[in-house]
Each structure stands twice: as C-alpha cells, then as structure tokens.
Design a protein around this nucleic acid. Structure first.
Length: 310
RNA sequence: CGCGGGGUAGAGCAGCUCGGUUAGCUCGUCGGGCUCAUAACCCGGAGGUCAGGAGGUUCAAAUCCCCUCCCCGCAA
C-alpha cells in the first residue's frame, strides 16, 4: 500500500512515527508551510516536517493544495491512499478523489460527536467520561465522512489535554494501522454518520480561557485540565493575569463570594467557586515562570479574603 | 526591527519613580531551644561581585544614562 501522509502538529508527528514503525512509511509527507511564529517571529518547521526530515522522507509544503505544480507531484507519486491527521486545511475534491482508496482521516473524537477543531479540549471541558479516535473516509464536509473504525478510551478527572492528546495520538496510530490492514484485505466496513447526533467542537477562543469562579468547581477544574499544557486557563489577581496550571476540586459548602481566597496553606491556596472550592497547587503569573503556589505565596503576600478575578 | 514584562542569597519577591547608614521580606537550609511529638512555635547562623560591561554621570549607583546578553507573557 503506497501512502502519502498529511499532517502538521505534534499529534500528527506522533502518528506518523507509529505508521512508519508499523511499516507504512509514506512515499511523501505534506505539511503546512513554515510560518513565522513565536517571539520575534522566527519561522519554525512543523513537528511533522521535523520528523519527516529526520527520516529522510520527501516533504511538500504547498500554500494551496489546489496548486497545479503540487497536484502534478502528488499524481506522479501515485498513492493508493492519503492519510490525513490534523493537517490544518480542507482538502479539495481533486485531492480527495485522486488515490484509489481516497483519503482517510483520524479524528480525535467519537464521531459524530465533537466534529471540528478542538475535539479533545471540548470533550474534557464538558466533563465527558469517554473519548476516542475515529477513522473515516474523507468527503467534502468537515468530519462528516463514513466511519471505518473507532477506538475509545476513558477520560478521568485527572486527565489533561496533555494526557488525552498523548493517548489519542497512540490510538490514532493504532486505528489507522488497523484500517490500512482492513483495506488491504478488503474487510473494511463503512458506516454513515448519523447527522442528528453530530456536535461541533469549536476552536478555543480567548474567552474560553478565562476562569469564571462563579461556575461549579468541577467545571472549572475541567476547563483548567482541558487547556493544560496549552494555552492554560487563567484568572486575574491584583490586576494581573495568572494562569492556573494545577488544581483540584473540593466538595464543600462555600458561602463566600466566588473568587475569594478561603485558605492559604503551605503548598496550596483554596479559592471559593460558585459551588465547591478549588485547591490550587501551581500557577503561572503573567511575565513569570510556572511555579508551585508555595513560591507564589512567598512572593505575593496573598492572604485569606483576597479576591481572584478582579 | 510586532507589543509588553523581567533578570537582587537555593526559591519566590520588595527596594529603583525623588541616587546616600550593616541591600530587606516570605520560604528553604544549617545549628540550638520548646515539645510525647511535629511540616507548629522560639532563638541564632551561613549564603548576594544587586545579569554582564577594569562603560558614563556623581563625593556617592541595585537605584540615573548608554551598550550587550539571557528569560517570560501577548500576538501569530
């Protein structure tokens, strides 16, 4: 089976690595162009590009997939199938229909739920207890193709975006390897998605990152975990942003105004929420480094009664 | 030349605006005490060329001016 791999971030790179290890080394790798990013606008190659280059695989970075030069190259590569994992752009019809088996995509949710840009974050944020990866046959719509294979995994209340991301990257590799085997043997079964059950996972916006202490502590915890280790959920303290990078919930009856500091202990501070409280262990103050709350306490003279969120 | 914050003992910070006694605070660490005991409390100690520049200004610079290096946030 001759394959072409398309992907961009770390997630894709992990999957690509697993595919290569399983003997499905692609004939070509396609990723988005290097863009200026980060402080000082330095251009950095994508994680997929870095891996592909390290393996000596040919890499293509077309601005547009409909570019005729690129299409010619793609056609000459003669892939049997194109594997797409978090590439970052929609594929035009010409590409979708080019390979014999078309294009397949591994999506980080149990479709038809959480179609779209941020399935892992949204699933954690919504306190889902289960997630997974779906491999589907791609078609024009966004994440609407027929389902070929699904692998599931539970989400615990200590999982973060980081842990779920890593788990699903592994599952994606497995699922794709399974599917490639099925296609080779002709045993693959295609099941249409039920559009009635579809939900969308919008990308994370600025306001999604703000902690609202009037919410239930469990929701706040879920938000924090959904955005760890990037970009992190934040609140404000003394007029400055402060990200909360590690916390857990406490079930207790709290009557204090949400955001109030209820306790300052040695290694944590307790903050009142709309329902219950949040025990914060690690923070990331604006312009500073990520630090244990203990350090923050030492330097900030925070005390019981102070307010977060203002 | 995208915008902004910052580099002061092992850690987190204050001091800098309006230069001037032994550079302070919280914690850690070491020693001692109290205690049945302790991560609690009390007493005491060590530890800083204040990022770097045989720079500038000055009687005097962590504090003002100039240059370099490094770290971080935002935005992408």
């Amino acid at each position: 089976m001759k394959t072409v791999f398309m992907g961009t971030p770390e997630f894709s790179a992990n999957v690509l690595r697993d595919l290569c290890a399983a003997g499905y080394t692609p004939a070509a790798v396609v990723t988005t162009p290097d863009k200026p990013a980060g402080r000082g606008y330095e251009t950095k190659p994508s994680a997929v590009k870095r891996f592909a280059v390290s393996q000596g695989l040919p890499v293509y970075q077309p601005d547009k997939l409909s570019d005729t030069e690129f299409l010619k190259i793609l056609k000459n590569t003669e892939p049997d199938i194109i594997i797409v994992v978090a590439y970052g752009k929609l594929l035009p019809e010409t590409v979708l229909t080019l390979p014999k088996f078309g294009c397949i995509n591994a999506h980080a949710s149990i479709l038809p739920k959480y179609r779209g840009a941020a399935p892992m974050q949204r699933a954690i944020m919504n306190c889902e207890t289960e997630t997974g990866v779906t491999v589907m046959q791609m078609e024009k719509g966004l994440d609407t193709g027929d389902i070929i294979h699904v692998l599931k995994t539970p989400i615990s209340d200590t999982d973060t975006l980081e842990t779920v991301h890593d788990k699903l990257a592994i599952l994606s590799g497995q699922a794709l390897i399974d599917v490639l085997g099925m296609l080779e043997k002709g045993t693959a079964v295609f099941t249409a998605q039920d559009p009635e059950l579809a939900t969308y996972a919008d990308k994370i916006r600025k306001e999604d990152e703000i902690i609202d202490f009037s919410e239930d502590s469990k929701k706040i915890s879920a938000k924090i975990r959904a955005l760890t280790p990037f970009p992190y959920a934040y609140s404000t303290f003394c007029g400055k942003k402060i990200k909360v990078t590690r916390a857990e919930t406490i079930d207790s009856l709290v009557s204090a105004k949400p955001g109030t500091v209820l306790a300052v202990a040695k290694d944590y501070i307790e903050i009142a929420c709309g329902n219950g409280a949040l025990k914060v262990y690690e923070v990331f103050p604006e312009s500073k480094r990520k630090m244990p709350v203990r350090d923050f306490i030492n330097g900030s003279k925070i005390s019981v009664g102070d307010l977060f969120g203002i």
